[in-house]
């Protein structure tokens, strides 16, 4: 086919484009991802029974703010990676902010604690299930985030996959925080981070294969 003919075909079928397409699609995907994760959490794991008392504790909100802030930053990174020629700027450094905050809190917890207490802060009672559960809850959002990214135009596929995975992981961790009864910053700084890294790594691995366009 001649290029001029192709251009004619493309221009002929071209209608107006909806503005803010990227933001709209992300909103839809996050909505479905959050719905799926909440449903899985409610059915398989269950909301923590002491939620009513827990919401009065500052640590409950810190535990929620930690993955939610990573989610917001992850969405910002993914939305930029979805657009050709957009630079990430300082966003990758900003991602370290919530991590640094939780690790500083962990250090403040750990330093004055006795050795036996430290063990409790690190492992809690659910360290074995925690990363696995977060990874499981991230599956719906992972699919949704990849579905959105495929319709956009990522040019760095490993990064775009990793950012999509991080969005899914952070969303899942936020939902998991409503089930999980652990209240130590040290626990969050280790096991929640590992839980979020599982979908992030899976996204980086799958990106080049699934996001090619």
């Amino acid at each position: 086919m001649k290029t001029d003919e192709l251009i004619g075909l493309l221009a002929q079928g071209a209608g107006a484009v909806e503005p803010n397409a990227v933001a709209r699609r992300y909103a839809t995907a996050l909505g479905w991802g959050a719905f799926g994760a909440t449903l899985l959490m409610a059915i398989i794991l269950g909301v923590r029974p002491d939620l009513r008392e827990a919401v009065l504790l500052p640590m409950f909100w810190i535990k929620l703010a930690f993955p939610v802030s990573l989610l917001a930053l992850g969405v910002a990174v993914a939305a930029r990676l979805a657009r050709p020629g957009m630079r990430l700027g300082r966003l990758p450094i900003a991602l370290l902010g919530p991590l640094a905050a939780i690790w500083i809190m962990a250090a403040v917890e750990l330093l004055p604690a006795a050795p036996l207490q430290r063990q409790g802060l690190v492992f809690g009672e659910t360290w074995r299930q925690c990363p696995f559960n977060i990874a499981m809850l991230s599956v719906p959002a992972f699919i949704a985030a990849f579905w959105v990214m495929r319709k956009l135009a990522p040019t760095q596929l490993v990064r775009a996959g990793a950012a999509s995975g991080l969005v899914a992981g952070a969303l899942a961790a936020s939902v998991y925080a409503l089930h999980c009864t652990e209240m130590a910053a040290t626990f969050l700084g280790i096991w929640y981070v590992i839980g979020m890294l599982i979908p992030t790594a899976a996204g980086a691995l799958l990106g080049p294969r699934l996001l090619r366009w």
């Binding site: 493309l10 909806e18 657009r83 050709p84 957009m86 956009l152 135009a153």
Partner: peptide, 8 residues
């Protein structure tokens, strides 16, 4: 053409 909605 097909990705023109990704232009900021």
């Amino acid at each position: 053409h097909s990705r023109r909605h990704t232009y900021d």
